[in-house]
Write a protein that binds this DNA or RNA. Structure first.
Lengths: 77, 77
DNA sequence: ATGTGACTAGGAGTCCGTT
DNA sequence: AAACGGACTCCTAGTCACA
């Protein structure tokens, strides 16, 4: 299911952010996005688009490719 | 700039599709998207969202991570 | 410092067609 | 087979007040 995918992505973003020991607010500032938007992403409520994936990756000191490299419960048949 | 990013992504999609020797129409059918939408993506006119990146990756016999692993002219900065 | 619901504008994505 | 356009629906980007 798609929901799982967004949640998996969000958790991955959160993990990377916490590794940097920065708040959602700081991350938001670093990539020019809104704090509540970051919150929505980490909770899997947002279907982020390509451009914002690149922005996030940069702000997280990672790469877009690495940002999509996560496992998620493939409830999908 | 963002435009370069979308174009880079689009070219990468096109390359992968041509390796499979399938048409845009076939790719569209394989990932449940519209033919004209695929065309737009390959031309760098579309800012694809996360869920569709995953769908494209699957239909291309690749991974989302690999799909974002391309270089693009960083006209940025 | 974060979660959440609601909101508008604009873009994602579809469907018709022509070149 | 693919580029491109118009018109359409619905969702995402981005922001707000508030829990």
């Amino acid at each position: 299911m798609n929901e799982e995918l967004l949640i998996g992505f969000g958790q991955h973003v959160r993990t990377l952010r916490q590794k940097l020991e920065i708040s959602q607010e700081e991350l938001a500032a670093n990539c020019g996005l809104d704090r509540t938007y970051i919150s929505g992403i980490e909770r899997g409520k947002r279907n982020v688009s390509l451009i914002n994936i690149f922005r996030l990756a940069e702000a997280l000191g990672s790469t877009p490719s690495a940002l999509l490299d996560f496992s998620f419960g493939v409830t999908n048949e």
